Amino acid sequence: MNSTTTSRRAAFRQHVAARQGLLLAGAFNAMSARIIEDLGFGAIYLTGAGVTNMSLGLPDLGFIGLSDMAEHAARVRDAVDLPLVVDADTGFGNALNVHHAVRTLERAGADAIQLEDQVMPKKCGHFAGKHVISTEEMVSKIRAATDAREDEHFQIIARTDAAAVHGIDDAIERGHRFVEAGADILFIEAMEGLSNVERLPALFEVPLLINIVIGGKTPVQSRDTLERFGYGLVLYANAALQGAVHGMQQALGRLQSKGQLDEDPTIVAPFGERQRLVKKPMYDQLEERYKAG
């Protein structure tokens, strides 16, 4: 493990612990991660839903596995320097699978992972028909995750979907058990009602992540408001995905209707901007440097 990785993880841990509502933007591939970094965000979340939607064209119903997320994590890590949180869904199995997943994703470049307490195959947190495993089974998974990490600054985010299944009180009780088991950050998914959003951070010793799903169940609040409530992380897991889908529909819709598409910056990113984002000038310099003769 190099010093850069260690210092990045330590700084990220401190930033989250400050409970200042750090915006965590979701990426679904290396290019989306580049854009997030270029725009000045402080951290990146590799979204399982985004990888499923954009790579497979399928809904978030548990169709991807550890190898998919590890491969995408390695690509994103090569592309950006920001702290990287990886969605590890249910840990892809039991506590032993979680142990293996943590080792795999840590080596792939993750700085934190998110584990959830849904029954496999999981569903998007804002879908109906979810089921959760027992508190005891999830506690075992969290313990396996904390045992498996090599770097003490590598963070475990424990997510519970129990609010939609058994009610908010059960989710809160599970949260306390997850923290006792060693979770560094708590994530109570699909909260409904502003009163719950406001009161939850004060109930726990560790920082909370809040997931804002555009069109989902949790009421949208500004980052400043969520910082005032005491959240450590404010996640927009699929804002980039939804923006990209809309952009493709706009550009290709114009192409289909008009039969041609010019370099209109209100519709498409200019050619030069695309090359800047993928660091083409840097590779031009390298090509010149290594040119034979």
Rank of each mutant, 00 (worst) to 15 (best):
N29W: 04
S32P: 15
S32A: 14
A33H: 06
A33V: 06
I36D: 06
E37T: 08
D38N: 11
F41V: 01
A43C: 10
I44W: 03
I44M: 01
I44E: 03
Y45A: 01
L46R: 01
L46W: 04
T47D: 02
T47K: 06
G48T: 05
G50A: 05
G50K: 00
G50R: 00
V51N: 02
V51E: 03
N53T: 15
N53Q: 11
N53D: 13
N53L: 04
M54R: 07
M54V: 06
L58M: 10
P59N: 10
P59F: 09
G62E: 00
G62Q: 03
F63S: 14
L66C: 13
S67I: 10
S67Q: 10
A70R: 03
A70S: 15
E71H: 12
H72M: 08
R75M: 04
R75S: 15
V76S: 09
V76R: 01
R77V: 01
D81G: 15
L82F: 10
L82Y: 08
P83Q: 00
L84K: 03
L84E: 00
L84G: 06
V86L: 00
D87P: 14
A88Q: 07
G91Q: 02
F92Q: 06
G93S: 08
N94F: 10
A95E: 11
V98T: 12
H99V: 04
H99E: 06
H99C: 07
A101C: 07
A101T: 14
V102S: 13
V102N: 13
R103Q: 15
